[in-house]
């Protein structure tokens, strides 16, 4: 039951933007370098994030990426869903008709998947980029512009 690497990198990239992209726009190259992800892969991820409206581009000499919504409206869950499509351990939780079993109408295990799904969403839908940024800055103790690795 693993999250895709892509969705984890997406959150890393967006948190990096929130923390280090305050005063100027960052390019994908910078974000990739800061998160130790290959630039080509980060480019793909930001393409998907852009389609979902979570980031947008500003052209020009000082161009780069900017967040598509206020930091307090971007949750972990929203980023994962933009990349992976959903955030459920079994697809019937999001959509019962995705189950083709004859036993579907009186399924005895869906309740368990719903409970697990709720446990995941409880954290993912509550945590915003703003909260994570504030916590990150607090933990790095003001040294956030120095050594990022």
């Amino acid at each position: 039951m693993k999250l895709s690497t892509k969705s984890r990198y997406a959150l890393e990239g967006m948190l990096y933007m929130a923390v280090y992209g305050k005063d100027r726009l960052l390019t994908v190259k910078e974000i990739a370098a800061g998160t130790a992800v290959s630039p080509a892969y980060m480019e793909q991820i930001f393409f998907t994030l852009k389609k979902a409206g979570l980031v947008s581009t500003v052209r020009g000499a000082k161009g780069g990426f900017t967040l598509g919504y206020p930091e307090n409206e971007i949750t972990v869950g929203r980023i994962i869903r933009a990349i992976d499509g959903d955030l459920v351990p079994v697809s019937c939780v999001a959509n019962l008709s995705s189950c083709k079993s004859k036993a579907r109408s009186n399924c005895i295990s869906r309740y368990v998947w719903i409970r697990i799904s709720d446990a995941i969403a409880k954290t993912a839908d509550k945590q915003t980029l703003e909260m994570l940024k504030d916590q990150f800055m607090k933990e790095s103790d003001g040294a956030e512009n120095e050594d990022i690795h």
Binding site: R8, E12, Q127
Partner: peptide
């Protein structure tokens, strides 16, 4: 049953998210 594998070079952001998001989930 963990939602993540530990992978790649550990950056400050990655270990921060491991501790504050994925481990909490």
């Amino acid at each position: 049953m963990s939602v993540y594998d530990k992978f790649g070079p550990t950056t400050k952001i990655r270990s921060f998210l491991n501790k504050n998001v994925w481990d909490v989930i």
